[in-house]
């Protein structure tokens, strides 16, 4: 009986989780059909779609890891760019292939994240502030060490294999599995959640908050380095940026994160984030296919984000109000009777 209930609940949750991306896809397909345009291009369409999903998934993993711990990190974009420049140059100089370049990205990203974490721990300033300083420094470093040129691997075919469909699926799968295991089955994950839901209590019970934060920063560095890897492999180049131009890269991961937040009621948070990324990519693909302009697309996704935030912030209030209304009706009916 219990097993049956469990299976039933699992299926129900799985259905509800998938409902958001599936419903979004259905809506987009209908709109494309009405407009007489294909949802995505026959050749290369799925690859471009998968690329968008992977980019936003890794950004959202990193952003979410910080956000749910009460930290906002402006330096994620700069870390991705600097990791791209350093790892790309190492890969070219040492004759690496795509896989070894990927491993280099992980190492460099983790190291950059560790530096960011050390500064946060040393200074004990609000992470938004330290991340601004780190973003400025990483951008400047990326520009300085490449003399403003960034890195270009377009003419090194051995390094361009990372964004085929299979490699991207493998990368996304590996990222999801690692996040799932780390946050659900390791001490780090348990401690992370404890701090997330009660910092003072967690610290008072002896939890080492600083170690946890440091590991968090390293993980985030490695995750955004994947964004850098994907961008470099897909486009062949990574340009240096200055004047906090990279800080906006973080914002684009917020919509998938918020959609994931809604879906996370029915499944694991990491799976929910991936589903949120898929949903966002479906919206983006669909809007591009029907020829929606950039400003219109920006408006649509922004209003969507506001709607989701409104729902998240007020969903319980609305439910409570509806329940109260129902009780009032029942009370009125019984009085009338």
């Amino acid at each position: 009986m219990n097993d049956a209930n469990r299976v039933k609940r699992l299926l129900k949750n799985a259905g509800l989780s998938l409902a958001v991306p599936v419903a979004t896809l259905a809506l987009m397909l209908i709109i494309c059909e009405l407009k007489g345009v294909p949802f995505w291009a026959e050749q290369g369409g799925f690859r471009a779609f998968l690329y968008a999903v992977c980019m936003s998934a890794f950004s959202a993993f990193a952003l979410g890891l910080h956000l749910f711990a009460g930290r906002f990190d402006f330096s994620l974009g700069a870390t991705a760019v600097l990791a791209g420049i350093i790892s790309g140059r190492i890969a070219i100089e040492t004759g690496m292939n795509s896989f070894t370049m990927l491993l280099t990205f992980v190492g460099v990203g983790a190291a950059l994240g560790a530096v960011s974490g050390v500064l946060y721990l040393l200074f004990n300033l609000p992470p938004m502030i330290t991340s601004l300083g780190v973003a400025l420094a990483y951008e400047g470093l990326g520009y300085g060490i490449s003399s403003g040129k960034g890195v270009n691997i377009s003419l090194v075919p051995e390094l361009l294999g990372g964004t085929g469909i299979t490699p991207m699926l493998l990368l996304l799968g590996a990222g999801l599995v690692i996040m799932y295991v780390v946050l659900n089955f390791t001490r780090f994950g348990f401690n992370y959640r404890a701090i997330q839901f009660g910092q003072k209590i967690a610290v008072d019970t002896g939890l080492n908050e600083k170690t946890n934060a440091f590991v968090c920063y390293m993980m985030c560095g490695a995750l955004v380095a994947m964004v850098g890897f994907l961008r470099l492999s897909y486009n062949g180049t990574q340009t240096a940026q200055l004047s906090l131009g990279t800080s906006a890269a973080v914002f684009s991961a917020m919509l998938p994160l918020f959609i994931g937040g809604v879906v996370a009621r029915f499944c694991d948070q990491n799976i929910a984030i991936v589903l949120g990324c898929i949903t966002t990519a479906i919206i983006s693909q669909g809007l591009a296919s029907i020829g929606v302009t950039l400003q219109q697309r920006s408006l649509i996704t922004s209003f969507l984000m506001i709607a989701i935030l409104m729902y998240s912030a007020n969903g319980e209030r609305v439910k409570a109000w509806l329940a109260k209304r129902r009780l009032q009706r029942v009370a009125a009916a019984s009085v009338a009777a």
Partner: peptide, 22 residues
């Protein structure tokens, strides 16, 4: 609507940017 200010203003930033371009 009790929306968290920082993330709400991120969304508003996109809305205002698009508005400016229009």
């Amino acid at each position: 609507f009790r929306m968290p200010v920082f993330v709400m203003t991120i969304a508003m930033m996109s809305v205002l940017t698009a508005t400016l371009q229009i």
